[in-house]
Amino acid sequence: MKGGIGLGMLLCCLAAFEAKAGCTAAGIASPAGYGSISSTLVRTVPQSTSSSNSGLTCTPGGISLLSEAYFKATITPTGPGMVGPTGDVITYTIYANNSTAHPITRGQAFDFASNGLLGTSAPSVIPLYFTTAVNNVAAGVYTETLNIRWDWKYCTGLGILGVCLGYDTGADKHSTLTVSMTVANDCTISAPSISFGSAPVVSAFSTISQTISVNCTKGSAYTVGLGDGTHPVSVGGRRQMISGSNYLAYDIFQGAGTTRWGSVGTAARRASSSAEVNPGNGLGTGSQIFNYNAKIYSDQSTPPAGSYTDSVVLDVGF
């Protein structure tokens, strides 16, 4: 009698510790979107994003995974990365956690369990993390669709003696995950100030010859404009420096010529194709140089002595 009662109690207790759990692989996982990033940042600084759910969803619970458990992801294709409208590619690395400690090699199974990333229970979801290399690319939308094969096995319940009461398994289950980024046109500009120095009369000021350096997104066609300053005679007219209530008229001209460099109208602006150095579309990794000359008009009366200044806005249009 005592032996029979003891066996019944053991069966009771074994059943009491059983837990129901299971995993499923969704057809479409949460996308990993970088959003809109300037081409300058894409070219100079690694960018990071993540997918909150890479496709595998499990019923969580405080159940030991045991040494034989595995949650394996095999990610394909093996390359090349996010592809844009001109064929440029943004390469990136996939990580199993939000550091660089666990990179995932495409085409090879990565086990989240054996790498110690899941703790002691089945995961509710498994996120993935993405960090780009620096890439010199044209503007546009870049995408790649990843296929993730899931294989898993883990214990869904333990008895009082530590015996596994059942397993949940899955093999060759698939999810797709889209990685995307919008690369926005951008430029870096170097435009030194113009200093005419000093002179006793307007006719004694020398013409200044200088350059503006512009580095814009790879493949971008753009124009460069110079505003009329803060005190123009009229829109598109002479620019003027000011000292108190007095003015000194001057202007900025394209290249070494006499065509005024302005901001409104095709002739007033300078196209990237007209650069003196590296004419054409933007290079991304190299600058285009625009020459100009600036002079003070000699057909005006010499104003009172003083320090005359103006501020001109340089703009780039795509």
Rank of each mutant, 00 (worst) to 15 (best):
M1P: 03
G3K: 08
G4P: 01
C12M: 03
K20P: 07
A21F: 02
G22H: 00
S30Y: 02
G33N: 13
Y34D: 13
V42F: 10
T57I: 06
T59N: 02
P60C: 06
G62R: 01
I63G: 02
S64L: 09
T74G: 00
I75R: 14
T76M: 04
P80E: 07
G84T: 08
D88L: 14
D88C: 14
V89A: 08
T91G: 11
N98L: 03
S99R: 10
T100Q: 13
T100A: 12
A113E: 11
N115A: 12
L128P: 08
T131V: 12
T132N: 06
A139G: 06
T145E: 04
N147V: 00
I148H: 01
D151A: 10
W152N: 00
T156P: 00
G157K: 00
G166F: 01
G166E: 00
G170C: 10
A171Y: 14
D172E: 10
L177P: 11
M181R: 07
A184H: 00
I194L: 12
I194V: 12
I194T: 10
F196W: 05
A199F: 14
V201Y: 00
V202F: 11
S203W: 04
T207D: 07
T217S: 09
A221C: 10
L226C: 05
D228A: 05
T230H: 10
S234H: 15
G237E: 06
M241K: 05
I242V: 15
D251Q: 11
Q254P: 02
G255E: 07
G257R: 05
T258M: 01
R260F: 14
R260L: 13
V264Q: 00
G265L: 04
S272E: 12
A275Y: 09
Q288F: 14
F290N: 15
A294M: 11
I296V: 09
S298C: 00
S301Y: 13
P303C: 12
G306E: 13
V313P: 00
F318H: 07
